[in-house]
Amino acid sequence: MNSRKSTVSLQFHMFLRGIILIGFFLLILKFVVNETIHLYIAPKMLPFVYFAGGCFFIIGVFQFFKSMSSNLAEDIECNCGVDHYMKGSFIGKTIIYLLFILPIIFGLGFPQSIIDSSVAANKGIQYGGGLYNYNQKNSATMLENQKYSSTIDMNEHVDDLEEYLVETDQQDASKDMAEDIPTPLPDTTTGEYNIYSVYDEFLAEYSEMDHIEVTDENYLDVISVINIYLDKFVGKTLTMKGFVYREPDFNEQQIVVARFAMNCCVADASVFGTIVESDQVQSYETDSWIEVTGTINETSYKGQKVMRLSPDQIVKIDTPKDPYVYPYY
């Protein structure tokens, strides 16, 4: 290969790559600056995104200035197995660079959207805040110290397969013990309900209130605990926010007030909903945001006993700045 020509070609690739990296930096910077980054990434992932932004900026600027230098080819020649010289046809290269450029253009240029009922319909709504075994399941909200100890616990298990089996046996044993705890689930074929202690704390906290205010922070806790101990909450009043969703088999008096819960990114968001039943709900359009105050009742939907809200008051609200809720664990 003609060495001068290769240097020139290398300079161009470095130049373009530097610009693309700075483009990714701009993308992240823009989301951070106009505070829309939480529409894409859960708060706990933010440090990683900042790290990526920093990397993009540093490497981008580095490449940009390096591309101006003249003795490039000699400088980076090494046997590292990475494709320093890009191969392929002109069209191939163009497509590859477009692949990198397009997300930046899409991200910067397109209006930012909040996933709504059309996505919810495809994902399927979780009634009762349960992630696993319907009502039995916590919404991944836990006290920090418990999380910590359990993580250590599990690391030990990883090292010792024997312990798995022992532990599994213990699980089975404790399942028997948990048998007499009242469960709101009609058909309980599987599952062990021995981890109620966390909810007992929430139960103690919330069952004393006559009126429960559901916020973004306690959304998953409250919804879970109410659905596990539904009997203890019937008759209390509750205020919650969400967007309107309608199942295909709903009648005119029924809507769902739903929220998306995001664990890491939008791709893994799941939908949690509460059924609201009244003859005044018809006028609220699907996907509009409302705040409902009402009395907790129970109902059954698709064979599952869930909370139902009989609304006293429904207020139309603006789409919140932060439309998603995040499990804090």
Partner: peptide
């Protein structure tokens, strides 16, 4: 949105 979100993650 999901595309950008997966990438950012």
């Amino acid at each position: 949105a999901i595309f950008i979100s997966i990438l950012l993650e």
